[in-house]
């Protein structure tokens, strides 16, 4: 072995997009690989968990972990990686705040399993086979250990101590590269910092910001399913609930450049206590009606308020502990 920094990648409850994002570094990944030793990366390399277990504590320089914690297996592996790593980085929206899978925290474990295994329109499961919840499954005569489905999805830092956060769904190659440079620079920022991205909201770097009128007031919340935005004007000013103003910048306004409003995957800025609460506040503020009935009428056209404002951050909401308990 040599003295190059050891790096681990791991995925929890995620779609695989974050893994793709690492590969999207393209030729730069060769630079990365030449600078580090990758000691664990289940999606790409054939190391076993036992290889990690065999490493001394704190021997991994940095572990990049993506996805939220939804299975007992996730908990087990990330605890192990924490033990073996000097630094742990929550990589991507799911690891940072729960991400899209975190929206399922509005439902109980039983509701989710029932929905997924029995009642979706595309499910054919006449024998009503459900995943075992005692941690074991039988394969013929063999009893094997299987992960259990946890009561809720947790962001990484609610299970282990996290040093840095890289936001995005997924983080863009630029953000990833910036973050890697920060980590390799030797001058580490304060613990808990979001690295690689901007410290201002997306509007700061959005090419359409200058087309926004001084008075941003809208008469309706439009939706991309039935409205084709003009490419030359701020999407929010056109009535699309673009979350750019409340979302950390750093992505280069990729969605907006593709004529899609920002949905908030870079999460909140550091002094925001609740991303959704703040998103709600600014969106409602600019709804240009003075009369309650008119306001209600426009709001009623929004199909899914929690999905809009907490698309990536529901498990970090201030209400996170109250979601299940009050749900019938």
């Amino acid at each position: 072995m040599n003295n190059r920094p050891k790096v681990a990648f791991y995925w929890c409850a995620s779609c695989g997009g974050c893994e793709e994002a690492v590969v999207d570094l393209a030729e730069k990944i060769i630079d990365v690989v030449s600078l580090v030793d990758i000691v664990f990366w289940p999606v790409a390399m054939d190391y076993k968990l036992s290889d990690v277990e065999a490493l001394p504590d704190n021997s991994i320089t940095v572990s990049f972990i993506n996805g939220g914690i939804r299975l007992s297996e996730h908990e087990k592996v990330v605890r192990l990686l924490r033990q073996k790593s000097k630094l742990v980085v929550a990589y991507g929206a799911c690891a940072c705040w729960g991400g899209i899978p975190g929206l399922a925290n509005q439902y109980s474990r039983e509701e989710i399993l029932e929905r997924v295994y029995l009642t979706t329109p595309t499910t054919a499961n006449p024998e009503k086979i459900m995943p075992p919840q005692d941690g074991y499954a039988k394969l013929g005569d063999v009893k094997i250990e299987v992960p259990t489905f946890l009561p809720e999805l947790k962001p990484l830092d609610e299970v282990i101590d996290v040093d840095y956060y890289i936001p995005g769904c997924p983080p863009t190659p630029e953000v990833t590269w910036n973050a890697i440079n920060v980590l390799l620079s030797g001058k580490l920022p304060d613990k808990g910092t979001v690295i690689g991205a901007s410290n201002r909201s997306l509007c700061d770097e959005c090419p359409l910001n200058k087309t926004k009128p001084e008075n941003v007031l809208i008469k309706e919340f439009k939706r991309v399913v039935n409205y084709s935005p003009r490419a030359d004007t701020c999407l929010l000013a056109q009535g699309l609930p673009c979350l750019g103003p409340v979302t950390r910048g750093g992505c280069g306004a990729l969605c907006v450049k593709a004529n899609m409003p920002c949905t908030g995957c870079f999460g909140p800025l550091e002094n925001i206590h609740d991303y959704g609460g703040k998103a709600l506040s600014f969106l409602a503020s600019i709804l240009d009606y003075e009369n309650e009935e008119e306001i209600k009428r426009e709001i009623s056209k929004l199909p899914d308020v929690s999905g809009l404002i907490y698309k990536y951050t529901l498990p970090k909401s201030l209400l996170k502990n109250l979601l299940r308990s009050v749900r019938k």
Partner: peptide, 11 residues
């Protein structure tokens, strides 16, 4: 330093 010039406040 934090302001992104998003203009929400202006109107």
């Amino acid at each position: 330093e934090r302001c992104s010039g998003c203009r929400i406040c202006v109107g």
